[in-house]
Design a protein around this nucleic acid. Structure first.
Lengths: 183, 183
DNA sequence: TCCAAAATGGAGTGTATGCTCAAAATATCG
DNA sequence: CGATATTTTGAGCATACACTCCATTTTGGA
């Protein structure tokens, strides 16, 4: 089962191609053939590495969901500003991954396994926002902080979707204002 | 060219089936066969009414985009509360259409014709929000109102996406809290 | 250098999809 | 009712899709 270097490079090329395609043309246009063409690989090689198309899609989606949150080890002390800043830099600096993140979230039907994973991750993230809010204002109740966190995260997600429709939209500027209003 | 009643009923059945399918299983699962099965119609009838699958999809998407905004004739006097209330009742009372609206917005690639229509409509809607904000607070500059409107609309859209992932999410409650900051 | 394991190329398979067509059925109206 | 326009049927077509197979080539440790 010891893998060769060439196989590992091929796997990386396939994942890269899949991520780029998802960002460029969405789930609809991301076919196995398109992935293989972009990765400069034949179908046989694809299925030597991945057992199905769904596996790559899941891997890229997982990667995107992971990347949206800042380092979990900081969770106990991070400020709201840092959390918002992390989201902004996710969108600005890793836009392909951000596009995948948003498309996956929206295209998943309510009860798919991807939707559940997505939701679970969202709830964790909302918890980190709520914690940061309570550190800034200890008078805030747990329940109120939870609601405020959902509203702020909703605003950030919504503004990111807005950016998805229009590259020119100034996401960072609006996100910071949202953080001021809902912080 | 005068159409028969049966044909008109068939068209309505196809549109209804398409809307329901988009809400239930997303764009991916909405095939011509699935639409025909649900509408209890054969493929030939489908293509007697619509020239392609894309045409129904566009028609339903257009219907959803139209339905999200309240009556345009009120635009000159409506309040922010009324605009927010209209969005809430759109999501709560017309959830299939709301699901379609959100999925279409997210799944459209940046440069498709659907994305352009969607964006154009969003900009109009943001304009109505901004106008209502300036009526409530005449000191607000046009530029500031535009930014504030984008932030509020972003929050509402983001919260609607949250609801898309999880039926149990209390959209109305969170939406009203998001709007309070601008009361 | 040799060799077994791993990776690759690429033709090929089955299936689902969007769509067509001509004949048959049905609606509308004088 | 008869004539004409519209709609329906359902088999069937071409294509694109995800995926398989296996002979061939490449890899990397002994």
């Amino acid at each position: 089962m010891a893998r060769y270097q060439t196989g590992i490079r091929t796997e990386a090329a396939i994942v890269d191609a899949t991520r780029a395609l998802l960002a460029d043309v969405g789930v609809e246009g991301t076919t196995v053939k398109a992935i293989c063409d972009r990765a400069e690989v034949q179908a046989g090689s694809f299925y030597n590495v991945f057992s199905s198309k769904e596996q790559v899609l899941i891997q890229v989606a997982r990667e995107a969901i992971q990347a949206v949150g800042p380092d979990p080890s900081l969770a106990a002390t991070e400020t709201l500003d840092e959390l918002v800043g992390a989201y902004i830099s996710f969108v600005v600096d890793k836009s392909p991954l951000a596009r995948v993140y948003l498309q996956v979230g929206a295209s998943s039907t309510t009860d798919s396994s991807v939707a559940r994973r997505y939701l679970r991750h969202h709830v964790q993230r909302a918890g980190r926002f709520a914690d940061a809010m309570r550190r800034a204002d200890p008078h805030l109740t747990v329940e109120d902080a939870a609601v405020e966190a959902e509203v702020l995260l909703g605003a950030l997600d919504g503004l990111a979707f807005r950016w998805l429709l229009d590259d020119m939209f100034e996401f960072a500027k609006h996100a910071r204002i949202a953080a001021e209003r809902y912080g």
